[in-house]
Simulated assay, not measured.
Amino acid sequence: MKIGVIGAGAIANFLFEKINEQQQENLRINSVFVRNKEKYKHLESKYAVNLYTELDEFLDSDIDIVVEAANITTVECLLPTILKKKDAIVISIGAFADSTLLAEVSNLISEYKNNVYLSSGAIGGLDLLQNAHALGTVDKVTLTTRKPAKTLIEKEITSERVVFEGKAVDAIKLFPRNMNVSIVLSLAGLGIDFTNVRLIADPHIDKNIHQIEIVGDFGEATFTITNNPLPENPRTSYLAAMSILGTLKRINYNFKIG
């Protein structure tokens, strides 16, 4: 599979190294879309990729699928154009809290027959949630996220503090960089208006911790995920980066699980 990547940050560099440098079977990054070609010129020789600053040229290059490794604004601005030509993997899933964008993307998928794959990011259990909700019988989905206090609030605190409690639709508006996980969980289950979210600033932890609780006709399930940071960038979840690589491998592998 020939891959085009949008972005050149921590997650993109993780993919360059793991796919091109370590030569993953049947995966190859050929093209990279960036704003500033000169700034990232070194990537061309280091990872044997081609850089593009014009979207149409990037999409017409030798690629089968586009990986977004940038931000919510990039998804909002570029995904509709991408879907007219290519499949896409999206990591900045918070963009789909915008119902207008979600509707537009859904229509483009139907019209152009291209696919959008949403990486699970820093959480898991989405396969169970989708299976449990296959008959629409999941009653409750709750996400409790704990993060180091200094990443959420400026004031120093000595005990944990709930900084948000409500629905996913409001969580992503107030904390767009912290609540992507709430949107992918919502899309897999009850939707952004019915997925419960608690965000806690905890001065006693140094990692992000996500706890997911699901209740329905199937029974009950609880998952807890403690995320190590990406070694190259402590602000990025290691699992979020790995989830893109995992998605690519699953797409490329004919033996499907789940």
Rank of each mutant, 00 (worst) to 15 (best):
G4R: 14
G4T: 15
V5C: 02
G7S: 10
G7P: 05
A8C: 06
G9F: 15
A10Q: 13
A10G: 13
A10M: 14
A12P: 11
N13F: 02
N13L: 03
N13G: 04
E17C: 04
K18T: 14
I19Q: 10
E21R: 07
E21M: 08
E21G: 04
Q22G: 00
Q24P: 02
E25P: 07
N26F: 11
N26G: 09
L27A: 10
R28E: 02
I29G: 12
S31L: 11
F33A: 00
R35F: 10
N36Y: 06
K41D: 10
H42E: 10
V49S: 08
N50C: 13
Y52Q: 04
T53C: 07
T53Q: 06
S61Q: 05
S61D: 08
D62V: 08
D64A: 06
I65K: 10
V67H: 02
E68G: 01
E68R: 01
A70L: 01
T73K: 13
T74S: 12
V75D: 09
V75Y: 09
L78C: 14
L79R: 01
K84Q: 12
K84P: 00
I91Y: 13
I91V: 15
I93Y: 03
A95N: 03
A95C: 01
A97K: 06
A97S: 09
A97W: 04
S99R: 13
S99D: 14
T100Q: 12
L101G: 02
A103D: 12
V105C: 09
V105R: 04
N107V: 13
N107A: 14
L108H: 07
K113P: 00
N115W: 10
Y117C: 03
L118S: 05
S119E: 05
S119N: 07
S120N: 13
S120E: 13
L126G: 03
A134L: 02
G136R: 05
V138P: 03
V138Y: 04
V138T: 07
K140T: 12
K140Y: 11
R146L: 10
R146Y: 11
K147W: 03
T151E: 13
E156H: 01
I157A: 05
T158L: 03
T158W: 00
S159D: 13
E160R: 10
R161C: 06
R161H: 07
V163Q: 00
E165S: 08
I172F: 04
L174I: 04
M179W: 00
N180E: 06
V181M: 07
I183C: 08
L187A: 14
L187V: 15
L190P: 05
L190G: 08
G191T: 14
G191C: 12
D193P: 02
F194D: 15
T195N: 12
D202S: 09
I205C: 05
I205T: 04
I209G: 05
I209K: 09
Q211G: 04
I212C: 03
V215T: 01
G216L: 07
D217C: 11
F218C: 03
A221E: 00
T222L: 13
T222A: 11
T224D: 00
T224H: 00
P229H: 02
P229S: 00
L230F: 11
L230C: 11
R235T: 10
Y238I: 15
Y238A: 15
A241L: 07
S243P: 00
K249Y: 07
Y253P: 00
Y253I: 05
N254E: 05
F255H: 13
G258C: 05
